[in-house]
Write a protein that binds this DNA or RNA. Structure first.
Lengths: 197, 197
DNA sequence: TTTTAAATTGTCATATTTGCAAATTTACTA
DNA sequence: TAGTAAATTTGCAAATATGACAATTTAAAA
């Protein structure tokens, strides 16, 4: 009975457009007009599916948190059986990991507004901590004889190197930056290996 | 004759307020009202001193570029005679280096809009490259027997670790993050020392 | 074909943002 | 004190953004 629901699909499309607009224009610059244009729908549909502006922000936060978390999980799940840390760096600093929607920019924009939207703060801290932990766990597993604190520091360095590069991708930086980032991240792995000698 | 000029002072005040608003609300969310309120002046004064919106953005870009460059220079100039790399990390990851106005957020926001403001792209790439080079130069000087490529990779890692942390400061992250960042950055220095053995 | 639930569009009032061009005030000088 | 150059304020029009609700269209089921 009735027309089939597009709620999930449309909601996802709109949130994806929203994310992109926030990355480009900032949270307060992501107007409903822009989002609607980016999503290819009428402005009034945003309200229909996501509610008013405050509710839209809430939905965006939830969306960004769950998507980023699942991307972290997928990244870990995609690792091969051997040489996992190296493969991790290949993902993070390969052409795929970085760029796409420059999602770290969205995180930065939301984080900058976290005093107005407290849920953004807790959600984003959770997201980032989860990535720290996931990477650290990988390193601890692959370097079982190395001090865990050192592994966590390495994970921290690798994650934030990725964050910085990703948030600068829209500058269309020299290709060399990705290599340098890859190399700098690799230093952390080598340092862990050094401590075994 | 005539009233004394406040051009420089006012211009600087307004640009500082502008910077803060861009960090908080994004480039397109930094409305003239917000900027004026932040600077404690009437909106129309912005126009008087900086021109219309496009000209304001131009001025902001120029301001951010020159300020960030001079901060880089000051940082280098503030280093002691010995143990300069360690001192560098103390500055970058001390309570002073990070936070303040979270100026990296402004860089991110401007970078995200660099397709609309081409001067932002060139200016920001210049700023970042200059910091890369300044830090790399320090490392090369302090580790003269180490491969320069390795020094540059270390500099790259340290700079972008700083960028990421600074752009997340508004989330009011756990204090531990600064320690972890400091530790991760230190890994780069230790790695350079290792290669001497 | 009629019913039905949901998508989609249309419209209008209100509030915010921006641009521009006066008027007005202020602080110094001759 | 009068002149003057600059700061500062005032006022208004145009453009844009938001909220809320009514009207219409669409795709499936009965």
């Amino acid at each position: 009975m009735g027309r089939p629901s597009l709620q999930e699909q449309r909601t996802t499309e709109i949130l994806a457009a929203y994310e992109l607009c926030v990355a480009r224009h900032g949270l307060d610059g992501a107007t409903q007009e822009r989002i609607a244009a980016e999503a290819g729908v009428k402005r009034t549909l945003l309200r229909h599916y996501l509610g008013n502006k405050d509710e839209m922000v809430e939905a965006l936060i939830k969306h960004v948190v769950t998507r980023f978390n699942s991307e972290t999980d997928q990244m870990i799940a995609a690792l091969p059986k051997t040489d996992r840390p190296k493969a991790l760096l290949d993902i993070l600093f390969g052409p795929l990991g970085v760029s796409e929607t420059a999602s770290v920019l969205t995180i930065n924009a939301l984080g900058a507004a976290s005093d107005r939207f407290p849920k953004a703060r807790t959600g984003l801290l959770e997201v980032i901590t989860r990535m720290h932990d996931a990477v650290a766990e990988e390193l601890i597993r692959d370097y079982p004889r190395v001090d865990k604190t050192a592994c966590r520091a390495a994970a921290f360095g690798i994650c934030h190197l990725y964050f910085s590069i990703d948030s600068l991708m829209m500058l269309d930086p020299p290709e060399d930056w990705l290599n340098q980032a890859r190399q700098a991240a690799n230093v952390h792995l080598q340092a862990l290996e050094e401590t075994l000698k």
